[in-house]
């Protein structure tokens, strides 16, 4: 089965970058433009892994994690947080919020794909 990725980011540039990397890696790719949209799309798409930005309008990344973790749809799905910060504080905050892991922007395609495989245990 093809791994299904849902990326939530308000930046179209980042969404398009993620799309190109994910599709190149052979994953199915879906995206959402903000937290609220992301949570809705999550219910529709039922992804195998979620990648979410933190700073977003309407609902931020922590809100997304919270909604998924407290929801009743596959609430232990791996969730990776996209962040431009690399500080330990922010990582700890993401972890406390329920994130599975994080990806620090700017990302490169190899590490991105490998981290997804690492948390899902799946190859494309």
């Amino acid at each position: 089965m093809t791994l299904k990725v849902l990326a939530i980011d308000d930046s179209k540039t980042i969404r398009e970058l993620l799309r190109s990397v994910m599709e190149e890696a052979g994953f199915d790719f879906e995206s959402a433009v903000d937290g609220v949209d992301g949570v809705e799309r999550y219910a529709e798409v039922r992804p195998d892994v979620v990648i979410t930005d933190i700073n977003m309008p309407n609902m931020d990344g922590y809100g997304v994690i919270d909604a998924i973790r407290k929801g009743d749809i596959d609430n232990q799905v791996p969730i990776l947080v996209l962040t431009t910060e690399s500080g330990d504080k922010l990582k700890a905050r993401a972890r406390d919020a329920g994130a599975t892991g994080w990806i620090v922007k700017p990302f490169d395609d190899v590490s991105l794909v490998s981290v997804i495989r690492r948390v899902t245990g799946m190859v494309a």
Binding site: N58, D72, N75, Q76
Partner: peptide, 25 residues
């Protein structure tokens, strides 16, 4: 090992909640 059960946590209808928020907006 993965003891925490999904049933144990209160169910929140994620999509519906998000919809409501959006409607408020």
């Amino acid at each position: 090992a993965a003891a925490p059960s999904t049933a144990a946590t209160p169910a929140v209808v994620v999509a519906a909640k998000a919809k409501a928020e959006r409607n408020d907006d």
